[in-house]
Each structure stands twice: as C-alpha cells, then as structure tokens.
Amino acid sequence: MKWTMVIDLTTCVGCWACVMACKQEHFLPRDILWGRIAMTETGTFPKVTKQIVPLLCNHCQDAPCVKVCPTGATVVREDGIVYVNYDQCVGCRYCVIACPYQHRTFLASIKEYHTGHGFTEFEKIGRQLYPIQEGTVLKCNFCMERIDNGIRKGLKPGIDREATPACVIACPTRSRYFGDQDDPEAEVVKIIRERKGFQLHKELGTEPSVYYLYY
C-alpha cells in the first residue's frame, strides 16, 4: 500500500480551499501552512499564462528529511506517509534544510490568531486535539488520522470522504485525487498513466508520492 495524491493543474482555480481545509483540520497555528498555493506567470505578453500550483509535502519514498534526522523523529510509514513524531523532534532543522520542496516549518512559538486577545476556544481545543509542540518541526501528514480512523471503520481512503485527506474533499473543482498506488484498479494509478502524471524535482531521486497533471 502506498498512498498517493494527484493534483490536476488544468482544473485548479487557486481558490485556497485546500489550504484552509488543512488549517482547519489540523488546527494549525498562525503563520503555519501545511499546504500552499504558488502562483506565477509564464510567457510574454500577449501570450501569458498564469500558473497555479498547489504545493504540499511530497511524502517522498526516499525522503531526505528522514535520512538526515538525527533522532529518528521523522519516519516513513509502510503506507508511504512521512510524518514527524513531535515527542522525539529536537528542533535542529536539518530536515527543513534538506527538503528540496521546502515543505517543513519550524514552530518557534505558538502565536495567537488575534494578537493581545489570548487564544480563542477554537485554538485551545486545537491544542488538545493536535498536541503540536513549540520548538519542533511541523509538516503535512496526509491527514493520516483520517486515513487510519477510516480504515479502522472499513472505509476506503480516496473514495469515502471520512477517510480521505481534508484538502482532497474540500476541492470544489475536484482537482485532487487520492488513492493507493499499489492498487492497479485505483483511480490515481489510471490517471497518472493516462495523463502522464509527473513529480516535482524528479531528478533528485526522492520519489515523491504527489503527482501533477499538466495535460
């Protein structure tokens, strides 16, 4: 089993719904984003194209962040999900440096959303449900809690909403697909094959689990 995400760049409209859904799902503190949208223009006037590319941790199968971690806090699970064990992270930031996709963030301190007004109830509940720690490194975990809970209930990630990452189900244009790359019948496998899905910085040999469709 290897969880894989496919992002269709031809249909993404850059609405940021995925970014917001991720922040809400994980109660992420201020200034911390696990998913991002990068936008740029290519070409010259009058033939200009706007590129909108949603970015997130690529959950590399040969992840540089896992190799460089001196404590073993960053782990690749058997299903391909790369996650950080906050109890083991010392905050050396070697993984932040080693990530070619720059999708790790060091959390120096948890800041209030409304400066000077204290933490809201939402933020307080968030810290209880997702006990992230100051002084550690954070990153996208492919909503592994949703996946694990879903599988426990007999649901299928990528098909059943309850077991699928928040960014995938929040996408209003259905630009994101999620599934098991080891399952030949999975939608992600067919899409990657038929539409020539590609990975970012493939030349680095990190074997990312996130594919993009451009055609």
Binding site: G72, A73, C92, F106, G135
Partner: peptide
C-alpha cells in the same frame, strides 16, 4: 542553544546510520 528542544539533545545520538549530525555528536 540553537535547538528548539535542547533538553532532548541526547536523542541526537540515536541515528548515526544515516544522519551526519548524529555522527558529529
């Protein structure tokens, strides 16, 4: 002092197989 969690520094001994920071320590 640079570490985010300095009291856990002893954990940095644990991964000399792959991590140069661990080897350095």
């Amino acid at each position: 002092v640079y570490l985010g969690k300095p009291l856990r520094f002893w954990r940095m001994f644990l991964r000399p197989q792959t991590s140069w920071i661990s080897r350095g320590l």
